[in-house]
């Protein structure tokens, strides 16, 4: 089990950041965004496209060849583009739906359609097979008894810093506080002079950038796949429900636990020869949580029914 601890920390971090981004979006817009996983994948796929050498052949269409930029520049550009994409989604799709009073259910079904559309666009234009970034291979080393590559350690540090910055942003900046105000009550927020359309757009941008970042580090740790968003989305849901939907701290905590659990379960004896089923354990835990404490660990009861 201990040999899985490093992987557990990494997946825990990824699911935690992704859960915060989904949970914030849900809190502010009330949209259960099934396409969130695809924004995560977008970050990974764009970075792959920007950073791979022009000769690599993971793209189906010969017309496009990768740009071969440096990895850091590619990542930053991808995160910014994810933010832009989030803004476009809000301006061209979700704001018109909101103004025309489409109900939550209709919007949920539309995000499902959007996710299927985007996911298969990735299948067509990017890697059908798992692809890796053009980064040198590294050996695992021993850090306080935990096996990690130096790059994994960098990812853990950067990820933790991002998470702390997000927390500070939500707590101390004017915009972050406004987001939380809209989340807690959009009516109240509009009374106190907050422009909720503006805040919602900012939330889309912020949440999508965070999602894109998650995709990139997921790509660094594992690989880039067209359907990587779908699986991680299920883990995010499990994490958010465990922590309590609508609370940023709960989502962070729940996401981390779920990510750890998925990796650590590989080491359990009854899982011998059943490694495929590791995700099933996290999802089964989610259903169990809903049965015994549906509001999650940190959630309040009023939010769930």
């Amino acid at each position: 089990m201990i040999e899985q601890l490093g992987n557990g920390l990494l997946l825990g971090l990824i699911v935690a950041i992704a859960s915060v981004s989904l949970s914030l979006l849900y809190g502010v817009t009330r949209i259960v965004n099934f396409a969130h996983g695809e924004i995560i994948a977008l970050g990974a796929v764009l970075t792959l496209f920007f950073s791979s050498s022009p000769e690599s052949s993971f793209l189906y269409l010969d017309r496009f060849s990768p740009l071969g930029s440096s990895f850091i520049v590619s990542s930053i550009a991808s995160i910014l583009l994810c933010g832009l994409f989030g803004a476009l989604l809000e301006l061209c799709l979700f704001r018109p739906l909101r103004k025309n009073n489409y109900g939550n259910v209709a919007v949920l079904v539309i995000t499902i359609g959007l996710s299927i559309f985007l996911r298969h666009i990735f299948l067509l234009f990017a890697s059908a097979k798992p692809a890796s970034y053009a980064l040198d291979l590294q050996k695992r080393e021993d850090y306080f008894g935990i096996q990690l590559t130096p790059r994994n350690v960098q990812v853990l540090i950067i990820g933790s810093v991002v998470m702390i910055l997000v927390g500070l942003f939500l707590t101390y900046t004017k915009t972050g506080r406004a987001m939380r105000a809209v989340r807690d009550s959009s009516e109240l927020a509009s009374v106190s002079g907050i422009n909720s359309d503006y805040i919602i757009t900012l939330t889309w941008i912020f949440s999508s950038m965070l999602a894109g970042f998650t995709g990139i580090i997921q790509g660094v740790i594992n690989n880039v796949r067209w359907n990587m968003g779908f699986l991680i989305l299920l883990l995010i849901f499990a994490g958010s429900i465990l922590g309590g939907i609508g609370t940023s701290f709960g989502a962070m905590f729940g996401g981390f636990i779920i990510g750890m659990l998925v990796q650590l379960s590989v080491g359990l004896s009854f899982m011998d020869g059943h490694t495929e089923a590791k995700n099933a354990i996290a999802l089964a835990l989610m259903i169990l949580i809903l049965l015994i404490r549906p509001q999650g660990i940190f959630g309040s009861k009023e939010r769930i029914s």
Binding site: V32, F34, N104, V105, L108, L231, L234, F237, A238, I241, H274, E276, A277, N279, A280, L283, A284, M286, I287, L288, L290, L291, P294, I304, S305
Partner: peptide
């Protein structure tokens, strides 16, 4: 049983997860 007491989105999430669990278990 666990989800129909709750808000509608929970059922969406649980059913989509159940389909994935089912696939993994059948394979496994």
């Amino acid at each position: 049983l666990p989800t129909l007491r709750l808000r509608g989105d929970y059922l969406a999430i649980v059913t989509i997860a159940a389909a994935e669990i089912f696939r993994l278990l059948i394979r496994d």
